[in-house]
Design a protein around this nucleic acid. Sequence first.
DNA 1: CAAAATAACGCAATTAAGTTGCGTTTATTT
DNA 2: AAATAAACGCAACTTAATTGCGTTATTTTG
Lengths: 146, 146
Amino acid sequence: MKIKNDHNLDFALILANHGVSKTKFRINLLNLFYEKESLTVKEVMNKFSNLINKVTIYRALVSFEEKGLIHKVPSSNNIIRYSLCNSDECSASLHKHNHGHFICNNCNQTFCLENYKSPDIKPVDGFYINSLNLILEGYCKDCHLN
Amino acid sequence: MKIKNDHNLDFALILANHGVSKTKFRINLLNLFYEKESLTVKEVMNKFSNLINKVTIYRALVSFEEKGLIHKVPSSNNIIRYSLCNSDECSASLHKHNHGHFICNNCNQTFCLENYKSPDIKPVDGFYINSLNLILEGYCKDCHLN
DNA sequence: CAAAATAACGCAATTAAGTTGCGTTTATTT
DNA sequence: AAATAAACGCAACTTAATTGCGTTATTTTG
Ligand SMILES: [Mn+2]
Ligand SMILES: [Mn+2]
Ligand SMILES: [Zn+2]
Ligand SMILES: [Zn+2]
């Protein structure tokens, strides 16, 4: 029992429970997702000071996604963002959050908007639904002023 | 008064009203948006049989967007989609639709889901909101079977 | 309506996100 | 500890998106 991170979580154990190999990098990557609401490949690269090969990051993200640890967040630019799955609301094959997410079109940070409740997922004739996301975009406090 | 399209609309006039130059291509492009729920650059290119330079398409889409004719549709892949603004719900600076949109992760078609009502836009402390989108993703009827 | 001004267009070159193959290293299983 | 499987790094590649610039089409003005 040697957990020493800001979340009192055993990230190696979480990885193991999801069938993901617990390498140093992947443990740190999972930790990172607990610190930031959402991440892009570039943001991960910067966080690791470019010491990790970008291909490794891409493949780790795909692996995390396949094993139900993270999911993609829709946005209007052409950069893929990932966000930690909420164990209450997400399963490996059906992702939703009960609240909206705000994406700043300048700094690209994302923020949870607890005020915005997203509708429940209900089946629709002939559509196989994998995810539901309520996306708000615009400028955050910092970026609006500039 | 020589309007001969499937929508009984004078696309040249609409362009003029929005301050967009009415070239043959842009008239046809606007027409195209009235036929398809959403479009990517590649889809536009194919519709014009690759006769229009892709840079021209990119710049026309940016122009349409700036003038409030179309807006981006968030998605989880890295390809930008545009959709016609709804004059009832969209303004040049604030875009929303009152219903969710479904994106097929295989054929990339989009479908309006009138059953899914999106919440109203309400101001949030320190956030400047430009758009609200309710995005559902998965597989459409055709692509689910394959 | 013709000239001047402005906006759109096409082409070539570039940037940057994302992917693939393969040999090597690290982790997991037996 | 040996065998198996997964992760990693590097180089090369693909493709979406952007930029510069000279040319052509549209719009504005006298
Ligand atoms: Mn999820
Ligand atoms: Mn709109
Ligand atoms: Zn911002
Ligand atoms: Zn489909």
